[in-house]
């Protein structure tokens, strides 16, 4: 077991993990961050995409020990506020409004990859969106509405850049945040 300190969606965690534990399994099984899903388990589909120190990565292809000292943002950390009063991230809202999903399984990864793309390119063309999310597979929609959603989010985010709820969630400094799995 190796001890790691990570900050996930604004909360700090100190945990013992086996070096072979993949980041996605740590997030889901130890922290209960089940918003991040395992799709293909072969680094192809992008469903498990999270941000590691602000950059989109496939969390099935990173070991949890490698996130030691890092900040992780999952799909659960991009909205602001809690429960009924929560405000969706503009990309989340746009996926909803533009019907950018059917079964929804690829959506967490699609949104995390799209947020990463928009940070780098705030006004992408259709083609640039398609290239930007080439690491994310959707087997339902044919991507058409996903591209529309990302472009709508881009327009909304650039329209009110000043109070844009960024991908980084509000900081909650709880050193011993809730875990779902008991520590060994």
């Amino acid at each position: 077991m190796t001890q790691i300190n990570v900050r996930v969606d604004g909360a700090s965690y100190t945990d013992d993990v086996e070096p072979r534990t993949l980041l996605v399994h740590y997030l889901r099984e130890q922290l209960g961050k089940v918003g991040t899903v395992v799709g293909c388990d072969t680094s192809n589909c992008g469903a498990c995409t999270v941000h590691l120190d602000g950059q989109a990565v496939k969390s099935c292809t990173v070991f949890a020990v490698q996130a030691d000292g890092c900040q992780v943002t999952t799909i659960e950390g991009v909205a602001t506020g809690e429960g009924e009063s929560a405000t969706l991230h503009p990309v989340q809202r746009a996926f909803h409004e533009m019907h950018g999903l059917q079964c929804g399984f690829c959506t967490p990864g699609m949104i995390m990859a799209s947020i990463d793309l928009l940070k780098e390119n705030p006004d992408p063309s259709d083609e640039e969106v398609r290239e930007g999310i080439e690491g994310n597979l959707c087997r339902c929609t044919g991507y058409q509405n996903i591209v529309r959603a990302v472009r709508q989010a881009a327009a909304e985010m650039s329209g009110k850049a000043a109070d844009d709820p960024q991908a980084e969630p509000a900081a909650v400094d709880t050193a011993a945040a809730d875990h779902v799995a008991a520590q060994a």
Partner: peptide, 9 residues
């Protein structure tokens, strides 16, 4: 090479 996420790592 691969995709955005893979190119980050």
């Amino acid at each position: 090479v691969a995709d955005r996420q893979v190119r980050r790592r």
